[in-house]
C-alpha cells in the first residue's frame, strides 16, 4: 500500500498545478505550471504501472510544451520585464466546456470494463504488439497524418526555392 500513500500527495499536487495553469496571471508561469501538470501526470502513470506511457508522456510533451513556451513569448507583445500577462476571458463559457468534458470523461471511465479493477497494462511489449496487430490501421493512419503535417509545415514556411 506504500505506493498509494505516495500517490495521494502526487495527485493533490497534480490538481493544484492544473488549477494554477488557468489562474496564474503570468503567461510564463502558466506554461511552467502546465509542464508541472504534464510531468506529474507521468508520475501518476508510473504509480499505475504504465511505465511506457509515462516515459512517452515525458518524451513527447516536453518538446511540445517548450515550443508552446517560446511561442508564448515570441508572439506576445514586447515587454520590459519577465512578466507576460495572461488575460482570462469567457470564463463562463470555459467553465461550461470544462464541465462538459468532465462529464464525458467520467461516463467513459465509468463504462470501461476495467473500471474498479487492477489490470496489468502498459508494458512496452504489450503496446508494441497492439500497435502492430489490433491497431495497425490507426497506427499507419497516424503516421501518414504526421507526415502530411510535416510536409505542410515545410511548404508553408518555404518562401522560395533555395
Amino acid at each position: 500500500m506504500s505506493e498509494f500513500a505516495l500517490l495521494f500527495p502526487v495527485t493533490v499536487f497534480l490538481i493544484l498545478s492544473a488549477i494554477s495553469v488557468v489562474t496564474t496571471r503570468n503567461l510564463v508561469h502558466s506554461v511552467f505550471w502546465l509542464a508541472s501538470t504534464l510531468i506529474t501526470t507521468a508520475a501518476v502513470y508510473v504509480f499505475l504501472g504504465a511505465t511506457f506511457i509515462a516515459a512517452i508522456q515525458l518524451l513527447l510533451y516536453t518538446g511540445g510544451v517548450i515550443t508552446l513556451m517560446l511561442f508564448g513569448i515570441m508572439l506576445s507583445r514586447r515587454h520590459s520585464s519577465t512578466t507576460v500577462p495572461n488575460p482570462s476571458e469567457h470564463q463562463l463559457l470555459g467553465a461550461v466546456t470544462a464541465g462538459g468534458v468532465l462529464v464525458l470523461f467520467l461516463t467513459a471511465i465509468w463504462r470501461t470494463p476495467a473500471f474498479g479493477r487492477v489490470v496489468d497494462v502498459g508494458t512496452s511489449l504489450d503496446v508494441g504488439n497492439l500497435f502492430l496487430s489490433e491497431h495497425l490501421l490507426a497506427f499507419e493512419a497516424l503516421s501518414v497524418l504526421l507526415l502530411a503535417a510535416m510536409l505542410g509545415a515545410i511548404v508553408l514556411t518555404r518562401t522560395s526555392d533555395p
Partner: peptide, 10 residues
C-alpha cells in the same frame, strides 16, 4: 525499468 532507455532520453 521495463522502458529502460526511454527514461534517460525523456
Amino acid at each position: 525499468l521495463d522502458v529502460g532507455i526511454l527514461w534517460p532520453l525523456a
